[in-house]
Amino acid sequence: MYNTDFPNKADLPTMEKLVRSTIIASVSAVAILVTVVLPSEYGLDVTGFGRLTGLTTMGEIKMQLAQEAADEERLSAQMRAGLGPDTAFTPATSASSAELQQLAQRVAALEQLLVPAQPASVATAPLPTTTAPVEAVEPVAAAPQWRDEVTFTLTPMEGTEYKLVMAAGSVATYEFVVDGGVINFDAHGEGEGQSLTYEEGRGVASDSGQLVPPISGTHGWFFRNRGDQDVTVTLRTGGDYQELRKLI
């Protein structure tokens, strides 16, 4: 195919000019990489420019999400490998048991600080939140329409996931209330080789409704605290499901 005239030898750029341009291109590429791409993609801020423009936060969130995705991948691979659903409770996630213990101690210390600040009438009553957030689900018999109630505290940037094991077409009701702030959540489900998103919420203080999954599997909520204060979330579930599980 002929669609161009060959340029004259004199019109072509000289070798020196080509080399110079290549060097300019690579130097500016490295500059862009270090100042913009690395902070915003990987949270690596060498120059401090990323912190200045807020790009580092973006990168840190991305890295955190990647880490959690990798952890969840590992978890579901374990479950597929037949290690059983019980292993879902022993978090094979990022935190080691030593870290968890340390975390529990810190939470306990925080609560001791908080209790004197409460009004006397409240302080005498046992606080529902004094049970550490790391503990698992406990059924509550008091509310008949709710089969499970779980309360957990999320520190800033922390996320957690609770899911119901449900058969296709069964109906579960839920509500959650956030104390001390707002929360982002993602209601989604997995099963039969599919994954679905039901609802996403940003900065909500409470939500309630029904889950009617079209597929059998696990369906539930991922919660993330994007605020800068600790929030306490109380999740109640009822209806037709097998169990409530803490996944992350």
Binding site: S21, I24, S26, M63
Partner: peptide, 23 residues
């Protein structure tokens, strides 16, 4: 052309760092 090369280098570095950094 120079701008394209620059963009190419950026993407190249992005991938290369990602190989090392991403969990």
């Amino acid at each position: 052309n120079v701008a394209m090369m620059c963009a190419g280098f950026v993407l190249f570095g992005y991938q290369l760092v990602g190989l090392v950094v991403v969990p």
